[in-house]
Amino acid sequence: MLAPMAAPPTAATPSSVAPTDPLGVAGSDASLRRFLHGLPGVDQVGVESRAAGLATRSIKTTAKAYALDLAVSMVDLTTLEGADTPGKVRALSAKAVRPDPTDASCPAAAAVCVYPDLVATAKQALGSSGVKVASVATAFPSGRAALDLKLADVANAVADGADEIDMVIDRGAFLVGDYRRVLDEIVAVREVCARPGGHDAHLKVILETGELATYDNVRRASWLAMTGGADFIKTSTGKVQPAATLPVTLVMLEAVRDFRRATGRMIGVKPAGGIRTTKDAIKYLVTVNEVAGPDWLDPDWFRFGASSLLNDLLLQRQKMRTGHYSGPDHVTLD
């Protein structure tokens, strides 16, 4: 990092208490701006060509088996529709716990991701399975609401037992350079994520990279979110195109790698939206492995926000197990 590196190293272990501003860069609006604009630039052609290179990795046999199980265990199985119902969420939860009913060796998904009003339903359905409940909040997906409404949205999900909160940043404020406003909002949400007895809800900060438009902005927004205390940085809501792309995720993986080098803290990364095939997922895992490093090859540190991806992973698992191609009737459609 070309940014200040004064922070003392600390152990890289998951922590539910994320200190805000570990680098001491947010003292003033000006210092925050200087810091973010002092981050090294990202060359679009260069980063896209690096991502394309990583995408040519050929992952076969044992490596593929490992990648498939890892990817399944990283899926935040998501439903974010106006038409969502308790029934739909219960079905999805069952699928998350046991993605492939025909194969006991298949790992569970990481989480079920729903709107706040369905958190309680999901929590109940998942019980003690270990599968987390994630809830989008803060006037998802646009984030265009008054702060107190956004915080109430979060508080509601936290009160209903959400393990993880996926908030959206104020892209409008970011694009006009009002980084302070974005940061303050993240910090405020983080406070609402706290639970008196511990077990704070983990905070995933959605950058909505499709609206940030440039990789320079993606890098800055990543650092801004991490400075605000994000546990995870997430690409997209899934409601804006383009959603997750490999190069955007690569830039975010570089950011968490560099943040760890600067502060000792590990932050997770979650690409969301548009990742539908095993082939895609494996490209992401290769990128995690070679850019952020193997430490991130864990559902605690990397997730896929997806819905249809899981079934493709399952079909591929079945193909590897049986030696022949499977079909959509052999995976469950919830």
Binding site: M1, A63, Y66, T263, D295
Partner: peptide, 17 residues
């Protein structure tokens, strides 16, 4: 800066000749 040791990756790419 924190020195981060590079762990052996569990994601060992199988031969792809």
């Amino acid at each position: 800066m924190t020195e981060i040791p590079t762990p052996a990756s569990p994601f060992a790419y199988a031969p792809a000749p």
